[in-house]
């Protein structure tokens, strides 16, 4: 099974569906330990991503991922915008000129994305952020040999839930210190939906 332009596009559409549907849930979490805009930011940004990728025909996965990255960077704003934007930009570089991507290349692209976000945000795992979902997912992919959609989604979900008991040391939630415990990190949750969307798309193949 390979990841093609068709899957990439479906992935983006599916992410958008989740962001629209869970906008309020994400915002509520960000109200609890942030400034209450994460759901708004993600819903606004991915709506624009869908608009953008629906306008064009893409030949390569790299191209569609690059348009997604640029739209995320310019439309999401906040902390999540440059971080997710960096992730998609790194994937677009890893998938450059490719029309179909195999498991290994796909895994490498996601690891590039993770490393890009780590550098950009000067953060590491355990700080109650996006990274706490991306790293377990990348490790899971690196251990496997082919796409296992359900296990992928489970990994992301489990990772997201683990952020609940973490104390934030990066991002706005860090101001809440110990009080940030007891709430799932909003960025971790939006990352979960990104991987859930991926699993749903891979499932259909």
């Amino acid at each position: 099974m390979h990841f093609t332009v068709k899957q990439a596009k479906e992935w983006l559409l599916q992410i958008n569906d989740h962001m629209q549907e869970h906008k309020q849930e994400l915002t509520r979490l960000d109200q609890a330990i942030g400034d209450g805009d994460h759901g708004i930011n993600m819903a606004r940004g991915f709506k624009e991503v869908v608009k953008k990728v629906n306008e064009k025909e893409y030949k390569t996965v790299g191209d569609i991922m690059q348009d997604a990255a640029m739209t995320i960077i310019s439309k999401v704003g906040g902390a999540a915008g440059p971080l997710y934007g960096t992730a998609f930009l790194r994937m677009s570089l890893a998938f450059k000129d490719k029309v179909s991507i195999d498991y290994k290349t796909f895994t490498r692209g996601l690891d590039d994305a993770l490393q890009g976000m780590k550098q950009r945000g000067k953060a590491t795992t355990g700080e109650k952020t996006i990274l706490d979902v991306w790293e377990p997912v990348v490790l899971f992919l690196e251990e496997g040999e082919s796409f296992q959609p359900q296990a992928l989604a489970d990994t992301a979900k489990h990772a997201m839930e683990k952020t609940k008991n973490m104390i934030a040391t990066k991002g706005r939630a860090a101001y809440f210190k110990e009080k940030s415990k007891g709430h799932i990190d909003p960025g971790a949750m939006s990352s979960y939906y990104i991987f859930l969307a991926m699993a749903e798309v891979l499932e259909e193949v």
């Binding site: 960077i73 902390a79 915008g81």
Partner: peptide
Amino acid sequence: IGEVFTSPSVDQ
């Protein structure tokens, strides 16, 4: 100028 309480994006 960004959205309410949201940093403006890189390109802006």
